[in-house]
Amino acid sequence: MNKRNFPSIKAFDQGIREYPVIPESLFKQPPQGNIDERFSIYGTGYSVRSREAMEEMFVVLPKLMGDKLWQELRIAYTLAYRSTSHNIADVGLKLPNYIRDEGFEERWAEMAELEVLAMKSFHAKRGFTLTLDDFSKISEDVRFKFQAATILFSSGFNCAAAWLNRDIKELELVPEYSIIFRKDFSVDIRILSENEFEFLNHLQTGASLGEALDRLKKQPNAEEFSQWIRTSFENNYFSELRRDS
């Protein structure tokens, strides 16, 4: 046996993957008890830890799916995806893709996606906070840099509403536009009109204030526009203002 290949570690690794089949021949007989019960600590460890991490990341989705379906999904996902991250908290990041790839309902994928984005917002880098003084500098040619924690999200289901109101029991098929943002260190979500969503989306993709307004299918009235800008500042969506010149 070539020791350079670390056969014992590789066989141990395979043993965890193939649990409850146990690589008994690798181990000495313990002074009390047996190899099987002791190996179960290693064989079940990943499943236990990934469940804890996923239940921290996904709070709304399990409630909407119901425990039985959620556990089925979680276990299947855990078996299909092994973590490549150094952080166990990342273990659920690929769940939205998995839900789609495996043909689960799209509404679950979108809810999972929203919760993943909320977590990304929570950990995102904090940029400068614009002040009321910056608010007064706004003109048509100004462009906005968004905070890394500010994420626009559109869905075919009422995912943001379910995130905001935990009493909602079912996801409904309804177009929904929202923005995930962080004030201080708390993540929040606002549901937007389609028009406000498009406006912010244009700004986020680099349009100036004037360009973003021009590109809208429906122009907001002055009061509506003023409200959009005021709310954006109040909720700290932006980290910087720029002018082309």
Binding site: R4, S50, R82, T84
Partner: peptide, 21 residues
């Protein structure tokens, strides 16, 4: 300890064979 091979992580503290190698 070790915690995984081939870039994958079990997020566990796993025992090493106690050998010269």
């Amino acid at each position: 300890c070790w915690g995984g091979t081939e870039g994958k992580n079990w997020h566990d503290l796993l025992p090493l064979p106690m050998t010269e190698h």
